[in-house]
């Protein structure tokens, strides 16, 4: 074998390895989706979405769960979006670059890697007990908001950083204040990236179970919440609940619940991708 043959061989074997590595993830995901689809697809019906939880598996539904998920996601978004964008703007536009801002930067990135159960314990101590929010939607939302804040902050910073300096200069040169420049030029130009980050953050939050169980989300809720002070359950907790039942019929329900959750996540991530592509097409510098 001459030198060229060895090179070709190396090249090909690396290619095979790369294809294999990519396939593992895809195949696993495929198997998972097919298995769940086979188990739960026939259970998806109008009745499944409109029924309360029940002791009889065939009558049980995810009504309280998806309504609770809507409440939790809405409230979480209301808390995390303004705070996250505000912090991102401060760090990128206002704070002086120095050891303090690098310190903050490192810590925010670290926070994104903290296990979610830790956030649950923090939420239990601070929101449920210290601030007397009780085991409510509000406490759960604050906890999830903390959990996704690092993602929102980092993505806001990144997209603000990508806005060219010349745009800011143009605005300042016309007598605009910092606030006007940020609000009327920088944020709209960064909006695509910021929104993508928010959607990705929320699609992470929608699947979180552990922190919500810690702050006291109920596994059985026979009513839908009327306000943010009510107790609640969410889709992943409902699924968790069904999976832990011994009866096989409940596993079908769990599979159907997972289909709904996966569908929501795919739609959210898909719209994030769409948004990003659209934005890149529209804005050229």
């Amino acid at each position: 074998m001459n030198n060229e043959d060895i090179k070709t061989l190396k090249n090909n074997s690396f290619k095979v390895w790369a294809v294999f590595a990519t396939s593992i993830g895809l195949v696993m995901l495929g198997i998972l989706l097919v298995k769940i689809g086979m188990d739960g697809m026939h259970r998806i019906s109008m009745q499944f979405f409109t029924s309360l939880p029940s002791r009889r598996a065939e009558e049980a539904g995810i009504f309280t769960a998806w309504v609770g998920t809507l409440w939790i996601m809405g409230t979480t978004a209301l808390i995390a979006i303004p705070v996250g964008i505000g912090a991102g703007i401060y760090l990128e536009e206002y704070s002086k670059k120095g050891w303090w801002s690098s310190f903050l930067e490192i810590n925010i990135s670290n926070l994104a890697g903290v296990p979610s159960i830790i956030y649950g314990l923090l939420g239990l101590e601070v929101f449920v007990r210290l601030l007397h929010m009780g085991e409510s939607i509000l406490a759960g939302s604050f906890t999830l908001a903390l959990l996704i804040l690092p993602i929102v902050i980092v993505s806001t910073r990144e997209s603000i950083k990508a806005v060219p300096k010349t745009l800011r200069e143009a605005s300042y040169a016309l007598g605009a204040s910092k606030w006007q420049t940020v609000w009327m030029q920088v944020l709209p130009a960064a909006a695509g990236g910021v929104m993508t980050g928010i959607i990705l953050a929320l699609s992470r939050a929608i699947g979180e179970t552990a922190p919500l169980i810690v702050v006291g989300a109920l596994t059985y809720v026979p009513f839908t919440p009327k306000s943010v002070f009510d107790s609640f359950t969410v889709l992943p907790i409902q699924i968790f609940n069904w999976v832990s039942r011994p009866q096989a019929e409940f596993l079908v329900n769990a599979a159907a619940g997972i289909i709904v959750l996966v569908a929501i996540t795919i739609v959210m991530n898909g719209s994030a991708v769409l948004l990003r592509n659209r934005w890149q097409k529209n804005v050229k510098w």
């Binding site: 010349t166 200069e169 143009a170 016309l174 709209p188 804005v283």
Partner: peptide, 11 residues
């Protein structure tokens, strides 16, 4: 007023 090196209209 100022005009810059590279045209920088707002998007």
């Amino acid at each position: 007023g100022m005009v810059f090196q590279k045209p920088n209209p707002f998007p």
